[in-house]
């Protein structure tokens, strides 16, 4: 949405930007809680799944109260947001955040000493810092390898120029470090929401868009999604419609790092390593192999991949 705004040269009012920030952080909290649960489920620790999703549920309810839907918020409009955070809702949100923070601290405390959990996560799926830099990995995956990249700080959007998050990095380079990055980022998000709600400025939530942007204007925005940075690029077209809209989801880059992460790993470690970068396979659906020597690009279809892997393992 902001890329269109950039293309049209509009800037949303301050209150709208604050509301966007709060929602983005709510989204991040729910995504990180969800991720921990899924990671627990992958290594068979269903109790983690159940408990972290239990803690996540109030966040979803809060999002539903603010926007009217649990996931598809439908909140952003060009030039602002659709719904205001109502005054009577704000006192309800603080206790929710408090209990969440308390419980999350307890969880962090409890799993910090869990040897069986560490046995599965520590030293698995190692992605050294230089390799991560070479492969352009983004998001919590790279922050677990001690590289402080966070587009909220690097290219502030929404109200992140005023509510500055602390970039959390861990030096472990393994799955455990990525768990810790996500868990600590949740605290950071809670802090940001609190500050945002306290300092919520008054004013309109929508600037009136007087004219449509002329065709051929470009706009690009980098957004730090919970999974990593997502890039939206828009070329405006005529007739209220974009001429081209390109999204680069973070999973594209993350997946490049997978082969080096799962080298010499057992089958049991592959799912959790893959899970540790929080992949979204809806965002990536084909394999493209570039031959470096001849600069030929070949897109493999599903059958071809299957045949190659079968040949390799002597089946079929």
């Amino acid at each position: 949405m902001e890329s269109v705004e950039e293309a049209a040269g509009i800037r949303a009012p301050r209150r709208a930007r604050y509301i966007r920030t709060i929602l983005l952080e709510l989204e991040r909290i729910h995504s990180h809680l969800l991720w921990l649960g899924i990671a627990g489920h992958i290594i068979g620790f269903d109790t983690v799944l159940m408990q972290s999703w239990r803690m996540r549920e109030p966040v979803m309810w809060a999002a539903e109260k603010i926007t009217g839907n649990r996931k598809t918020y439908g909140q952003n409009l060009i030039g602002g947001v659709r719904r205001d955070i109502e005054k009577e809702l704000i006192p309800e949100l603080f206790p929710m955040l408090d209990t969440l923070e308390q419980q999350w601290k307890k969880v962090l405390d409890a799993i910090a000493g869990d040897t069986t959990l560490k046995a599965r996560l520590e030293g698995v799926g190692i992605l050294p810092a230089d390799k991560a830099r070479d492969l352009c990995v983004v998001g919590p995956t790279v922050r677990g390898s001690d590289i402080p990249i966070d587009s909220r700080v690097d290219h502030p959007y929404a109200a992140y120029d005023e509510l500055v998050p602390r970039v959390i990095t861990f030096t472990g380079c393994d799955n455990w470090a990525r768990v810790l990055v996500r868990m600590h980022e949740t605290f950071e998000s809670i802090r940001l929401i609190r500050e945002g709600l306290k300092n919520l400025p008054d004013g309109p939530i929508l600037t009136q868009v007087e004219e449509t942007p002329p065709p051929g204007r470009e706009g690009m925005i980098v957004v730090e999604a919970p999974r990593g940075e997502a890039i939206h690029y828009v070329i405006t077209g005529s007739d209220y419609r974009p001429y081209r809209w390109r999204v680069r989801a973070p999973t594209y880059q993350q997946l490049q790092a997978l082969p080096s992460m799962i080298q010499h790993a057992t089958v049991a470690d592959v799912p959790i390593t893959l899970g540790s970068m929080d992949p979204c396979f809806s965002c990536t659906e084909r394999l493209e192999v570039i031959d470096v020597k001849t600069h030929k690009v070949k897109v493999y279809s599903n059958e071809e991949i299957l045949n190659i892997s079968r040949r390799k393992y002597g089946r079929g």
Partner: peptide, 16 residues
């Protein structure tokens, strides 16, 4: 190790 297991169990049981 057992302390963390007990802590985990307490988190679970506290919620009811």
């Amino acid at each position: 190790m057992f302390r963390s297991k007990i802590k985990e169990a307490i988190i679970c049981l506290e919620a009811g």
